[in-house]
């Protein structure tokens, strides 16, 4: 079964770090932790920072997003993830290049396009801060504490255990995310940069990167199959599903803003958006490490 995170991406040690960061290290067993277990144990403190971000984003975007379009996009994305899961049973491509990851990218495109045309990325980029570990821990803690927030993960077929692994990956890589993959927009000295206006919002870069990697994966797996084995393929599927899950979470936040239903508090909204973007950013930077940058130790045996 290659559709689950069975390749040691997430170790029990990582899970322990995750649980400890959320303050539930003694209450939940790392090896079998589920989202329910964590939710029942976690006590998320109130965060004025998260609440303010959610309020600002909501103020920017209310009236500009289309809930129905986003719901259609989410359904398409969920269907594509399901198809990927089925296609993945074949393992690595052999004689012919396949297109299961490209299909996932195609299904993700309408959500991305809608978020792009409505100014969603500009708004989230303007209000979300540098993704420092403490901020991420706060956001993830709030996220996991709400069953409604984690619900979109189930719509993609992710189990409760997968959900824990997804969030563990964010916390386990928080330092790297902070150092390498997330520079707050206000930190970029655009006025000093000749092409400063051409550097995209980081939130947009996270979602565009998801599409770019998904569009490339089928060709990479087919071209490099002499170096790869089912372990690499399993990693590719895991990271692809993670990237899709991150996009699904972000679109859920956008949909909630569009609905104006108040089903998420401002604090919950920013926790959802932060977690969604962080998952996308981390997954797309784990993907090359596990599937593209194939060292001698990682490669499949020579014939």
């Amino acid at each position: 079964m290659v559709t689950e995170n069975t390749n040691g991406q997430i170790s029990d040690e990582d899970r322990r770090t995750f649980l400890k960061a959320l303050g539930v290290g003694g209450a939940v067993a790392a090896g079998s932790a589920s989202l329910d277990d964590v939710r029942n144990a976690v006590t998320a403190g109130e965060s004025a920072q998260l609440a303010q971000i959610g309020s600002d984003v909501r103020a920017d975007l209310t009236g500009s997003l289309d809930a129905a379009a986003l719901a259609d996009g989410q359904a398409e994305l969920a269907s594509a993830v399901s198809s990927l899961t089925a296609a993945a049973e074949q393992g690595l491509p052999a004689a012919e290049q396949r297109a299961e990851f490209e299909s996932l990218a195609t299904a993700s495109q309408p959500i991305y396009d809608h978020l792009e045309t409505t100014g969603f990325f500009q708004s989230t980029d303007a209000h979300l801060p540098q993704f420092e570990p403490s901020y991420l821990e706060s956001a993830v803690s709030t996220f996991v504490g709400s069953e409604a927030l984690t619900e979109p993960l189930a719509s993609l077929g992710l189990t409760d255990g997968d959900g824990v692994d997804l969030l563990t990956e964010v916390i386990a890589n928080a330092e790297e995310l902070d150092a390498y993959h997330w520079v707050a927009s206000e930190e970029i000295p655009r006025s000093q940069i000749e092409f400063g206006e051409k550097i995209p919002p980081m939130t947009k870069a996270a979602s565009f990167g998801v599409l770019a990697w998904l569009n490339d994966l089928d060709e990479h797996l087919w071209q490099k199959q002499v170096l790869l084995d089912d372990g690499h393929y399993g990693d590719a599927v895991w990271h692809a599903r993670s990237m899709a899950a991150g996009l699904q979470l972000v679109s859920e936040g956008a949909k909630a803003v569009a609905e104006e239903s108040g089903r998420f508090s401002d604090e919950e909204l920013s926790a959802l958006l932060t977690t969604g973007f962080a998952v996308q950013a981390i997954a797309q930077n784990m993907l090359p490490k596990d599937v593209y940058w194939v060292t001698e130790e990682m490669r499949a045996p020579r014939n």
């Binding site: 390498y180 520079v183 550097i199 565009f208 990167g209 599409l211 770019a212 490339d216 797309q284």
Partner: peptide
């Protein structure tokens, strides 16, 4: 510095 160039960079 790959921060400002998401994706495989074809």
């Amino acid at each position: 510095n790959g921060v400002v160039r998401a994706g495989p960079n074809k």
